Each structure stands twice: as structure tokens, then as C-alpha cells.
Simulated scan of single mutants.
Amino acid sequence: YQDQPHRNDYNQRWKGYIGAPTNDNHWDGRPSGHGNGWGPGPRYRPGQLIDRFPDRNFRVPYRGMDYYYSGGYWYRPLGPRYEVVEPPRGIRVSYLPDYAEQVWIGGALLFLAAGSYYAYEESTRDYVVVEPPAGQPQSPPPAASNGYDVEAYPANGQSPEQVSRDGYECYQYAVQQSGFDPRTATYQPDPSVVQAYRQAQGSCLSSRGYQVNY
């Protein structure tokens, strides 16, 4: 099994590999993982659709289906677009993003990246998606995930599905209130427009039981 680069011009290891550098500055594959489990963004949620990948991507065939892996997130083709999905248990990748977090559970070292848990296999030097440890469910990402969005964390134990639904509905509400859509904008908006968008989005999420950071 090998990850299959989606772009033919990708012939070197991505700089975001987790690993320990050897004396000749090559990566030896040993994991380090000193992040917090979430990168600076975007923080995608299962069910979200994208038109193109935010980073280099790999096609990863698994059990007769094609998955795509990019920047710690997993996708499935959906028409001309790609849908963010939870990775199936047992699928493997050769790198994790540098924001992955070490998690020690009962003496076993796991890695948490974008809400999914991985175990590192020394023999194959890859990472295998595993079930979340008991008492450690997949943590949902913030309900908002855009450079203009507020950060909102579920405060009432909302499920990932509820987080996804609330995030999208409050995004729609903020677009209606402000007239600004950050997902389609091709210009730098006026600061007052951004403030109106963020205030509307934050108020909506707060009313639904989220801790909002402006």
C-alpha cells in the first residue's frame, strides 16, 4: 500500500510531516506530535463541501472506495465537489499534520488530528485510524471554520452532527444579516461588514449553547 499523490508534480515529502529529524535532516518517520489536535484553520466538519483542497492531497483507496486526504482531513468525491467525512477505521496514511496532538491512553500512545485518532505502526511507518478511546469521543471542531468566522465551541455536549448543523445555519444567518458571504467573497470587505457578520454569527451560536470567541 502506498499513498497516491493526486498531483504528479509532488515528488518530495510534505514539510508538514510529523516525525523526528535525523542528523542528515531527513525524517525518520518517528512521530512527535506537539500540537493541540486542531490547526489554525480551516476547521472542516463532516458533511461540509469544498470545491478544491486547501492543501496537497492524496488519493487513498480503501475497501473499494476512494478517499482523499489533505491537511489532516478526509474527503469523498460528491459530484464535482468533495465532502468532508470521518475516516473509516483501519485506513492508513503516511503522515499527520504538524498540529496533531499526542494522547496517552492506558499506556498507549495515540495521535489526535482534526477529531480522529491514529495509532502509529513502527513496522510500516504509517498511521492507522482507530476507534476513539473509551471516554474520549471524537471531539467536534469549532462550529465555525473560516478566517472571518468567530470560533465557537460546543458547551453542552452537542454531537458532531449538531455542531455541523448549527454552524451552517448560523453562517447562513450571518450572511443574511450582513450581506457578506466569506465563502464566496473575492474581495477584502470593509471592517464594519466583517464586524456585522461576526456579531450576527456569534449571537446565533451563543443562543444555541456555544462558547464564542470573537
Rank of each mutant, 00 (worst) to 15 (best):
D9C: 08
Y10V: 15
N11S: 12
K15Q: 12
G16S: 12
G16F: 01
G16K: 07
Y17C: 12
I18N: 15
I18T: 15
G19I: 08
G19V: 07
A20K: 14
A20Q: 15
T22N: 15
T22E: 15
T22W: 04
T22P: 04
N25A: 09
W27L: 12
W27Y: 09
D28L: 06
D28V: 14
G29R: 02
P31R: 00
P31V: 07
S32L: 14
S32G: 06
S32H: 05
G33N: 05
G33P: 03
G35R: 08
N36V: 10
N36F: 04
N36P: 02
G37Y: 07
G37L: 01
W38C: 06
W38I: 01
G39D: 11
G39Y: 11
P40M: 10
G41L: 11
P42E: 01
R43V: 08
R43F: 00
Y44E: 02
Y44G: 01
R45M: 13
R45S: 12
R45L: 14
P46W: 03
G47M: 11
Q48C: 02
Q48M: 14
L49V: 00
L49P: 03
D51I: 00
D51N: 14
R52L: 04
R52T: 12
F53Y: 10
D55V: 05
N57H: 15
V60G: 04
Y62C: 05
Y62M: 02
Y62L: 05
R63G: 01
R63P: 07
M65I: 06
D66Y: 03
D66L: 02
Y67I: 00
Y67L: 04
Y67T: 09
Y68P: 01
Y68C: 05
Y69P: 03
G72M: 11
G72R: 04
Y73C: 04
Y73E: 11
Y75K: 13
Y75T: 00
R76V: 09
R76P: 05
P77V: 13
L78P: 03
Y82M: 04
E83F: 01
E83C: 01
E83R: 14
V84L: 07
V84S: 00
V85D: 00
V85Q: 08
P88F: 08
R89M: 12
G90L: 07
I91G: 08
R92E: 14
Y95L: 13
Y95S: 13
L96C: 13
P97N: 13
D98S: 11
D98H: 05
D98F: 04
